[in-house]
Structures are given as C-alpha cells and as structure tokens.
C-alpha cells in the first residue's frame, strides 16, 4: 500500500506526517486522541542518519508530548550495508534508537508497530520490534533473509530449506511464521483506523512474545527456558 493511502486510511480524522527522504515523522488524529507517527518508506535501508532522525523524533515526543502513544510504520529492507556506516558505528546508532524507544515506554508511551510493507532484520530489530503491539498488513513481508541467500550462506541445499519451511516456522520468511513464533500479533484488515483505535490504550505489560510463541506452538522452548533461568 502506498504510504499516502495508508496514512489516510489510518487517520480519516487527519494527520500531519511529513515524508522527508523516505523518513516519516509527525502526528495523526484518532478516535482516542493524537498519536505520534514515525517510520520509513520505499523499503528504505536504515543508515546512521535514519536511526538518528528517528531517535531525535522519539526524544522530542518524550519531551513535548508526555505519555502520547507512538506508532511505528515499518517499511525497511534492513540496515544499510556500507563501510561508512560501519566506520561510524551504525550498531551504536541503532542501539541509541532502541534505547530512546525503551525510555519512551518507561515513561508511559505505548509503542505500536504496523508493518505495512517490508520488515527485514537489523533495521526492524532496533525499531519496530521494540513495540508492545506489533501488527502487519496482509500484504506485508517479514524476514531475516530470503531462502536462496540463506542456502548460500549456510551451505545447505535450497530444496532442503524449502521442504523444511513447510513444517517449521523458525527460519523461512513470512508473516504466518512470525505470528506462530510470537513476533507478530495480528494481521490488520480494513478499516485500519478501527484496528488502530482498538489497540491504543491497551495495557502495557512485560515482553509477552515468548509466551505467545509458546501458546501458538511456534517456539516451544524459549518460554520454559527463559522462565527457568529467571526463576530457578
């Protein structure tokens, strides 16, 4: 879905979200009040300046709009692969973004993510995956790596990966797999504005993902092991 259409569907009451070089920042109006919006478009590869711009915006929301919910709109092909980004320590820029989002949560900002197009590894990890509520559109794509690239790097036959991906949700790309594993909660159907309003204001608890993955039988070990280490 085009970002303009997405924003109109999410915010029929209006929004002021800017798109500057494929980085989205701004605010939308919902039936439950104003919400801060940030994200990326056109499968943007997240570089150091992207992470910094997004982090800047989160800090501004914390300062100027205490407690306001934050919606992250995810469309990224992952982190930008370049020597320059590594030279500057891009992992630190992404960690900074994650820390800003965590601070927002600690200060009572609800974090909601909508994957509307593409969500890939590193760029997704420090951004959309930091949310309490993670939802997708049906046409969205979520992955770490496509199977041919995975086959090349792991030196495993592609056929074997394809065959196993039918029964195991743990490595192959796809929304359904991430739902089973607890990484994504639901797929949003139109009208999107209603879906958004439904999750705004839901109680924010601890990280529930391993429990969801356990209940959905996608990740059977993460929950019992983490609980044992935590409590044992």
């Amino acid at each position: 879905m085009k970002i303009e259409n997405l924003l109109n569907e999410l915010f029929p009451m209006g929004h002021a979200v800017k798109n500057v070089q494929n980085i989205l920042t701004g605010f939308g109006s919902t039936g439950k009040g104003k919400i801060a919006v940030l994200g990326t478009t056109d499968h943007l590869a997240i570089g150091v300046e992207t992470a910094l711009t997004l982090a800047d915006f989160v800090l501004m929301v914390i300062k100027n709009s205490p407690g306001q919910p934050i919606l992250m709109l995810v469309d990224t092909q992952g982190q930008r692969l370049s020597k320059k980004d590594e030279l500057l320590g891009i992992n630190g820029y992404l960690a900074h973004l994650a820390k800003c989002l965590q601070l927002a949560r600690q200060r009572g900002h609800q974090l909601i993510t909508l994957i509307y197009s593409e969500a890939v590894s590193g760029g997704f990890l420090a951004f959309g995956m930091m949310a309490d509520e993670i939802h997708t559109l049906a046409e969205a794509r979520v992955r770490v790596m496509n199977l041919p690239a995975m086959a090349r790097i792991t030196k495993l036959p592609l056929e074997q990966l394809q065959e196993l991906s039918v029964t195991s949700p743990s490595f192959a790309p796809g929304i359904e797999n991430f739902i089973k594993l607890g990484g994504v909660q639901t797929v949003w159907q139109a009208p999107l504005a209603e879906q958004l309003v439904k999750v705004i204001g839901l109680e924010v608890g601890d990280d529930h993902r391993r429990h969801s993955g356990f209940m959905r039988e996608g990740r059977k070990l993460a929950y019992p092991i983490a609980q044992r280490v935590k409590e044992g």
Binding site: L125, M129, T154, F171, L181, R219
Partner: peptide, 9 residues
C-alpha cells in the same frame, strides 16, 4: 540463520 526468525525475535 538455521532458525533465523526465532533468533531475530
């Protein structure tokens, strides 16, 4: 990568 989705989460 052998359990990429589970590892990412």
């Amino acid at each position: 990568l052998h359990e990429a989705n589970a590892g990412l989460i």
